[in-house]
């Protein structure tokens, strides 16, 4: 159990570094935002699950669950607003209006 926990926490730490690496290397603010918010939250989810496997008690479990729930509930709203701000700041409003429609019609 502790081995799985260490592996999960190690993966989470590595993913956090990869997310920061993406923030450095990706070409524009919108792409960087993908790396930061999504990969960052996935990394934290792995770390939190790993921490729970280390100390599987109630008083740890509800706190870890609450952190994960807050992150999951707030991330879409924050990333939505930040993406809109980035689009406006990058002057992509026209591209936003003329964005092509992809995929078939829904059933």
């Amino acid at each position: 159990m502790t081995v799985i926990a260490v592996v999960l926490i190690g993966l989470g730490a590595a993913l956090l570094v990869i997310a920061a690496w993406g923030v450095i290397r990706l070409p524009d603010a919108l792409s960087r935002q993908h790396a930061a918010t999504k990969a960052g939250t996935l990394a934290l989810a792995l770390v939190l699950i790993g921490a729970f496997l280390f100390v599987p008690t109630v008083e740890w479990a509800w706190r870890l669950g609450l952190i994960l729930a807050f992150l999951m509930a707030t991330l879409p709203i924050a990333s939505h607003l930040l993406a809109r701000a980035a689009v406006v700041e990058a002057g992509l409003a026209d591209e936003m209006r003329d964005a092509p429609r992809v995929g078939d019609e829904p059933s």
């Binding site: 956090l16 997310a19 934290l44 924050a78 930040l82």
Partner: peptide
């Protein structure tokens, strides 16, 4: 702001 998001994730970690 995106960089601050990474700071936040690092602080929680």
């Amino acid at each position: 702001v995106v960089a601050l998001d990474i700071f936040l994730a690092a602080a929680i970690a």
